[in-house]
Design a protein around this nucleic acid. Structure first.
Lengths: 338, 338
DNA sequence: GCTCGCCTTGACAAGGCTGTCATGGCTTAT
DNA sequence: ATAAGCCATGACAGCCTTGTCAAGGCGAGC
């Protein structure tokens, strides 16, 4: 059983009042330097830790940041948590994770926990970050939130994004630099904002380099392995097939690889394949997938930072936001055009 | 801004004392049925939610359950969270996730948060569940914990496991039933308890069915794609290769599939491949992987249940534990022996 | 030398809830 | 009928910290 040291004992040991200890703990100004030192020594000596419940009951902070997600890829969720925690720990905050079932009654799920926990802020991952009900409840409860890679309504709240257009542009440019001119593309789920942005980057790169975007070499996918597989079957069927395929996420790219394997098309000698996201699966195929890495942990850390006072919203101005850099991860699935 | 209804107003509205409202909220006995009803109506009418900070400050419960993990597979972490939350929500508990860096000073990481948060219990995932320092700190702080799939020291604490031996046995039996007699095996990381158990199940099934375990067809792996890939290269090199390979996790099985592809061995016509874990990757290959599914969410829910009073430890007896059932997931990567 | 105002500190209340104990009414045993 | 006991409820203290406000000390300006 831990000894449960209270602020009282720290105060007694350092010969000051409780309030002064509190001041030191909260890094408040107006404490003489040696008083501060004395208190800090006592804290260390007694191994004192403030009780978070008492703190949040008395004060206004709860020292809790929420992370809401709904069935996104596990790797994404984990990365978000790691990134957010890294920043939170510095300030003594903790992370509450809450899966949201977007199909169900969203308000009923989040309203109770918001009023019970009184969190200091919430990080919203896609697709929850674009759920109007969620945003409305959060605003009604007055809980600050930051959205990760939001799709729409960018000016509605603070957010953190990556430049999908430029990333897709650069991946396409990479293929073009390898000598490819006929590059197939598999679009993502039409409901996902990133889909359009990535397609836009692809088109932009093709056009700027003077290559035609061939309608028949652009397929609709839905971000799933299966949809990538099926799109690839159409794309790679005849002899008039592209020499490279850029799938707008890794799962679909993996589908392309599977089809290529079946058709005995060597990757990357006969066909280059590129993905997007750098999921764990990208390294669990042979050859390993060339893809785009989103700095998810960094994005989550930035989100936490915005919440923890990295930025105060100025009335009348657009809410604070951050745009982070992606990284092109060139592995073995792309090579020179045959 | 939310209106912050307090217990006081509920009491006034229902014409009882604060304490009685508290009794109703905590499902305490000795409240007349119609009093209870009246209070519940007031709670609903006012949309009252108890303040968790006040509750835990006054009482002994914190309404928080921690989940500690250290760099396991993302899919695993996510499943654990989902499973645990499902159970926690029923009781109004919330989940605090805390990544642990086992390489660093573990005590320094968890001791502060334990004394600050005073969680009601902690769920430990592998490999943290076998970290002696973590267990020691938890015990010193008097925080109850449940381990998921612990490796050693089973009687030290409550835990939840799956029967790895039997699962491996059944997978092997499945291959044998398909007519395979020469079944290769790739072992997992020797530091992982599950590795030995799975190998044991394989040996047991082979032996019981009268098939020899050929030394040369058992390879050491380390649970990684790469190690599976390399093991498969050795296993499938000559003409005297097994007709089926059972890799003791999915990542390694994926490595086997990649090698098979390179060698132009058709799966499953020429070679059957089986994995273990049913990771997302299992469905993102073609053909999809036959594997064993661990009921991770159910295991986590069981762990939460043990923590939330599903079982009280009786002094002198072994701590409570649960053994859950696995599921054989037969997909396309296994077929009749040629 | 005196006033003003800032720096430093402390006393005290408040925050919303649960634990403890006391109360009165009613049932059961004697 | 009386004692004993249980049930239903309430009054009040206390959980540990922060916010508010007041007070004392001290240097600066007049």
């Amino acid at each position: 059983m831990s000894s449960k040291v209270t602020i009282h004992e720290v105060a007694r040991m350092s010969g000051v009042s409780i309030k002064t200890v509190s001041r030191v703990l909260n890094r408040e100004p107006n404490v003489k330097i040696d008083t501060r030192t004395r208190v800090q020594e006592a804290v260390a000596a007694l191994n004192y830790r403030p009780n978070i419940s008492a703190r949040s009951l008395a004060g206004s902070k709860a020292y809790l940041i929420g992370v809401f997600f709904d069935n996104p890829s596990p790797a994404y969720v984990t990365d978000v948590q790691l990134g957010a925690i890294a920043r939170c720990r510095e300030e003594g905050y903790h992370l509450i994770v809450e899966p949201i079932d977007s199909e169900g009654d969203v308000a009923a799920q989040i309203e109770p926990m918001l009023s019970t926990l009184r969190m200091d802020g919430v990080i919203l991952t896609p697709p929850v970050c674009d759920n109007p009900t969620v945003l409305a409840v959060l605003e009604a409860e007055g809980v600050p939130y930051v959205r990760l890679s939001p799709d729409q309504d960018l000016d509605r709240s603070a957010h953190v994004r990556m430049d999908d257009v430029r990333a897709a542009y650069e991946m396409t440019a990479h293929l073009i630099a390898l000598g490819h001119t006929d590059i197939g593309f598999i679009k993502g789920h039409p409901d996902h904002g990133a889909s359009h942005l990535r397609y836009e980057g692809y088109v932009q790169a093709m056009t700027e380099h003077g290559h035609a975007v061939r309608e028949s070499h652009v397929e609709q996918g839905y971000f799933s392995f299966r949809s990538g597989f099926e799109a690839a079957e159409r794309l790679l069927a005849g002899d008039d097939r592209p020499t490279a395929v850029f799938a707008s996420n890794d799962d679909m790219a993996l589908g392309v690889m599977a089809v290529a394997n079946r058709l005995r098309l060597n990757v990357p000698e006969t066909l280059s394949v590129a993905g997007f996201d750098d999921t764990p699966g990208a390294k669990v195929v042979w050859p390993q997938l060339t893809t785009v890495r989103q700095p998810i942990q960094a994005m989550a850390a930035a989100a936490a930072d915005l919440l923890l006072g990295g930025a105060t919203r100025v009335e009348g101005e657009a809410p604070p936001s951050r745009l982070l850099d992606f990284e092109l991860v060139v592995r073995e699935s792309t090579g020179p055009a045959r």
